[in-house]
C-alpha cells in the first residue's frame, strides 16, 4: 500500500498535459456549477417575483433592464453567460450519454467530439445572441441608438 507521494491521485489539472478531453471535462463542471448556482437562483427568484405581484416582478426586471425595457449590461452578461453554460453543459451531456454506452473512447474520435462540443457551444451562443440583438445592432449601425 505504499504510494509515491509525488504522483498525483487522479487526472490533476496541474500535472497532466492539457488536451480537448480535459478541457471539455472541466468546462462541464464549471458550466454545471454556474447553471446550478446562478441559473437555479435566477429561476427561483424569477418565479417567486412573478408570484408576488406586478410590483415585485417589475423590481426583478429592473435589475436586468434599462428604463425603456431593453436589456441592460448586467442582463446581457448574465444571459449570455447562462446561454453559453446551457449549450456547453447540454452538448457535453449528450456526449456523455454516448460515452456511457461505451462508444467514442478512441483517441481521435474522443478528441474530435470534445472539440465539436466546445466550438458548438460557442457558435450556438453567438448565433442566438446575434439573432436576439439584431434589431438593436441594426439601430446602432444606423445611428439611431
Amino acid at each position: 500500500m505504499s504510494r509515491n507521494p509525488d504522483r498525483p491521485l487522479s487526472p490533476h489539472l496541474m500535472h497532466w498535459k492539457w488536451g480537448p478531453h480535459m478541457l471539455v471535462s472541466i468546462l462541464h463542471r464549471m458550466a454545471g456549477v454556474g447553471l446550478a448556482v446562478v441559473g437555479g437562483l435566477l429561476l427561483a427568484w424569477w418565479l417567486l417575483s412573478a408570484a408576488s405581484g406586478e410590483a415585485a416582478y417589475e423590481s426583478f426586471l429592473d435589475w436586468f433592464t434599462v428604463d425603456s425595457g431593453a436589456i441592460n449590461i448586467i442582463g446581457v452578461i448574465f444571459c449570455v453567460g447562462l446561454t453559453w453554460a446551457f449549450f456547453q453543459h447540454l452538448f457535453n451531456g449528450l456526449r456523455h450519454f454516448v460515452l456511457d454506452m461505451g462508444a467514442g473512447y478512441e483517441l481521435k474520435t474522443n478528441r474530435r467530439w470534445a472539440l465539436i462540443v466546445v466550438w458548438g457551444a460557442i457558435l450556438a451562443t453567438a448565433g442566438l445572441w446575434v439573432w436576439l440583438l439584431w434589431p438593436a445592432l441594426v439601430n446602432i449601425s444606423a445611428g439611431e441608438f
Binding site: 437555479g40 429561476l43 427561483a44 418565479l47 417567486l48 412573478a50 408570484a51
Partner: peptide, 9 residues
C-alpha cells in the same frame, strides 16, 4: 429552491 419554484408556479 425547488419549494420556492413549485409553490410560485
Amino acid at each position: 429552491g425547488a419549494a420556492v419554484a413549485i409553490f410560485s408556479i
